[in-house]
Amino acid sequence: MSQVNTVLGPVPAASLGVVAPHEVLVSVLPGAQYAYDIRMDRAEIFHAVADKLTAFRAAGGGAVVDAGGMFAGRDVPLYEALSSATGVHIIASTGQMDEAMLGGYFLTPQTNPPTPWPAEKFAKLYADEVTEGMVVPRVERRAAAGLISTAVTASGMTPTDESQLRGCARAAKQTRVPLSFRAGADPLAELAVALDEGLAAERIAVSNAGDAAKPIADQGAFVVFADLDAAVQFARGGYADKTLVTTGGAAVAFGHEVASASYAELLRLVPADLTEQLLIRNPAALLAVREP
């Protein structure tokens, strides 16, 4: 039976139940952890996220996917404790967002000249987070990542975005976990980059797809909607098996403004006749570790 990588280990895909398939639990704008005026109280963070997960569970929810990647607030030990305490499965992601979100290590390495990272280096960094486990920086590796998540610069794909997208697609193909990316200016061309790495469209979810939603779904990829009305319309237009929904927010955020997510509300707002397809079958199909 297909398994899904959760922060507490692999579980059968069929056991996830209702899934919020594309969320961010803890969102930290990189660098905010060093800000003199931002207080990050782990107990407060835990309780704030736990309250949302508990409400989701009470409403019938079973799992939440943290699609924020490895460098924007992901805290694997915290997620483990949250999952244990609330009974909600948490699937965490590897990958990093668009070029502007990357640290200098990837952009201006200590070489002459300072050439940004190529695709193969990103591929290894992220594949290792699946095969060897997600990192607690400089401390240890924990459970396997369940998703590889990245983003393309909104104004257009930079060469480093492309390297990273290729690396993510390569890692997804190799490790059999799915790929999600937030599209930039040309979603179809960006999808083509991921497909060019030999990853099947069915293993890819695209958010911020805009007008390209239909052609993306026609190729077999999933489309992630933050606008629930648009999602419902898309699903009812013949694309129910390719539609995913997100609150577009985060449970807690530091260093930038992000809408406060409610997973229980997401579940409540999805029409009852679409709940099983959008929140159970589609997420399970995407998240199951399987042949690319």
Binding site: G103, Q110, P137
Partner: peptide, 13 residues
Amino acid sequence: YGMPGCELDTTWW
């Protein structure tokens, strides 16, 4: 000293 983000790469741990 390390460039920001190097902490993610176990190569250097």
